[in-house]
Write a protein that binds this DNA or RNA. Structure first.
Length: 300
DNA sequence: AACCAGGACACAA
DNA sequence: TTGTGTCATGGT
């Protein structure tokens, strides 16, 4: 296993209103580790360390890099956050969420990694999803170049080994057995992941197709995959395909909607869906992420 | 020590 | 259409 020890390339991405911590620790991605005010993770086949500063983000990679578009795209540093925030409804819950989570961004992930990760997410706490994904990468992922982390700044010494591997490809996972997957602690999600993986590896499902469809059709398409219902489809549509109006409703968001918008009323599930689909505007998914992170962290 | 977690699915009424 | 049981696993 090759370790360069020191980063081989770096770039400074100037950006304001970007909160790395809120973004990387808000349940969109599951492979990022914090040490001091740096975050280490893997994007595609690249080990990356990001360091927040006042005027932007310093990015360092273990391998040499010529172009950085893949990272700007992943981090979404080029978008005008202010423009998006202005489209949010001007009500008190939304104002509180935005104030509490200023600088939170919706990332643009690889569809396969996002899809597989969220198939593993059902009725799991985020910490546990991280564990499962870590095991999956260590056991089935390709080794990549990485840098060692300073022991002094290291808060989580046992877990950075997983960042020495890329996220496993669908082709590799398709050759795994259900027992091997269950050994990664994913339980009843193992047959789901395996079936979906094979649909993709066998070419029966094209992960590029949803990109070309309107939201509603893309959603139907994704739910053809085993283990993918409406909620997980919405996550992938929002976090990977860039459908900003996709609105995932998990237990936290449902709780937030009932609590913040329908206190002391027994809003039906149908009414809640209608509210979610109409109240939050063209970037509803973005608003959803603020509500999710807000209720999960700030409202205890 | 119960309770709960970024659900999906098959099936009932 | 809405409601139930089931499926594993570990943190709090």
């Amino acid at each position: 296993m090759i370790s360069d020890k020191k980063p081989a390339a770096q770039i400074f991405l100037p950006v304001r209103d970007y909160d790395l911590a809120a973004t990387l620790d808000s349940g969109q991605v599951f492979r990022w580790r914090r040490q001091a005010n740096s975050w280490t993770g893997v994007v595609g086949r690249r080990w990356v360390r990001l360091t927040q500063s006042e005027n932007g983000i310093l990015a360092e990679t273990a391998s040499s890099v010529k172009y950085w578009d893949w990272l700007r795209d992943f981090l979404q540093t080029e978008i005008e956050l202010e423009t998006i925030l202005k489209t949010f409804p001007d009500d008190e819950p939304m104002r509180n969420a935005v104030t509490a989570c200023r600088g939170l961004r919706v990332l643009r992930q690889d569809p396969w990694e996002c899809l597989a990760s969220f198939i593993l997410s059902s009725t799991k706490q985020i910490v546990q999803i991280r564990q499962i994904v870590a095991l999956l990468c260590e056991r089935f992922g390709e080794p990549i170049n990485w840098c060692s982390v300073e022991p002094v700044a290291r808060l989580d010494s046992a877990t950075d080994r997983t960042l020495q591997f890329a996220f496993p490809t669908a082709e590799r996972l398709a050759r795994a057995t259900e027992a091997e997957l269950r050994a990664c602690k994913m339980g009843f999600r193992a047959p789901h992941l395996l079936a979906a993986t094979r649909q993709i590896a066998d070419g029966k499902f094209d992960l590029e197709k949803p990109r070309r469809l309107p939201l509603a059709e893309a959603r139907v398409e994704l739910t053809k995959l085993r283990g993918v219902g409406g909620k997980i489809a919405d996550c992938v549509l929002l976090f990977a395909y860039g459908f900003d109006s996709a609105f995932p409703v998990d237990v936290w968001v449902e709780r937030a909607l009932r609590q913040l918008y329908f206190p002391r009323r027994r809003a039906s599930a149908k009414r809640l869906r209608h509210f979610a689909a109409t109240h939050f505007g063209p970037h509803a998914g973005y608003a959803q992420q603020y509500l999710f992170h807000y209720t999960r962290t700030k409202m205890k």
